[in-house]
Amino acid sequence: MSDTKERKLTIARAMAESVAQYMRKDEKVFVMGEDIGVLGGVYGNTRGLIEEFGEERIRDTPISETAFMGAAVGAAQNGMRPIVELMFVDFFGVCFDQIYNNMAKNIYFSGGNVKVPMVLMTSTGGGYSDGGQHSQCVYGTFAHLPGMKVVAPSNAYDAKGLMNAAIREDSPVVYMYHKGLQGMGWLGTERGATVNTPEEYYEVEIGKASVVREGTDVSIVSLGMGVHHALKAAAELEESGVSAEVVDLRSLVPLDRDTIRASVAKTGRLIVVDEDYHSFGVSGEVIASVVEHDISVLKAAPQRVAFPDVPIPYAKIMEQFCLPNADKIVATYKKMAA
C-alpha cells in the first residue's frame, strides 16, 4: 500500500515548507518582506513561519524596498542567508538599483571574494484583471541582467526543490512564482501545479530544464503558467495526431540550452510560450539558442506565443486577448505545419 501514499502540496505550501525546514537546520536563514509575518504572505508562501520562528527571523518590513533589499544584500555579504520577498514583481522599479547594480554585481566586483547568498521571492503573472502594475512577469528583465540566477517553478515539486537549491546557493537567486499556480483559491489556481511533493529534503538543480511531456513533432518550450498552457495544447494536438514535446525551463539563468536544442533537434519545430512581453525577452533568447547553434534541424521558422508589447490592460476582454493560452498554441502549430 505504501506506494499509493502521497502528499500533494500547493506551490504556496511547498515554498513555506522548504523555508521552514531550512530555517530549522540553518540559523542564518531568515525572511523579510511586506506582510510576510502575521498575514503569511499575500500568496501564502510564508504561512506558519512567524508562529514557528517568531518576529526575530520572520520580519515584516516597512514599505521601504530600497532599504530592505539593500539590507538583504548587506546581511548576505555579512554572513546571513536572507530570503526577501516583494509581493509583486511589478513593484521592483522602486528598488531596482539594489538588485541589478548591487546584489547582482558584488560577487563579480570582488573577484569572487564576496558571496551574496540571498533569495529574492516575487510573484508574477496576471489573468485576473489586476491591471498593468500588478500583472506583469518581466522574466526577461531579470534574466537579461547578469549576476543573478533566475528560477520560475511550474509545480509544487519543483517549487520546493528549487527553493532548497536557491537557499543553499551562494549567489543571489531571484525566485519568481506565478500567482495563478500558488493554490490560492481566490486566484483560480491551475490544478496541475498541486503535485506530489516529498517531505524530505531534495533539490532541483538550478539551470536544468525538464521535459515534462515527450513528443516528436514540435517542441513547446515555456515556464511557469505557460507550461500548463503548453500541456493543454499538447493534449489537444494529440487528438489530431500531433505529438508535442513540452519543455519546462524551470530556470532562466542559467538557461538549459542543451535540453532546448536536443528537443528541437528531435522535433524540428519550436514554439516558445511566454507570458512576458514579446520582444527582447525569454522567447527571443530561447529561439536564438537554437538558431545560433544549428539551423539545419529546423523544419519551420520558430514561433512565439507571448504577451504583445503593450502594458497589461485591465478589462478582462482585452487582457485575455493578450495572454497566451492553449488555443493560441494549437493555432500557431497549425500555421507552422501548414
Binding site: G93, S129, G131, Q133, H134, P313, Y314, A315, I317, M318
Partner: peptide, 28 residues
C-alpha cells in the same frame, strides 16, 4: 472595464486618469 471608461478599460480602479480635473492615481 468598459470602452467609455476614463481609459477605455485599460487602467481599472487603480489607474483612473481624468485630465479635465487633473486627477491621476496609481498602484505603486
Amino acid at each position: 472595464g468598459k470602452a467609455n471608461g476614463l481609459g477605455g478599460g485599460r487602467g481599472g480602479h487603480m489607474h483612473l486618469f481624468d485630465d479635465d480635473v487633473n486627477f491621476a492615481c496609481s498602484g505603486i
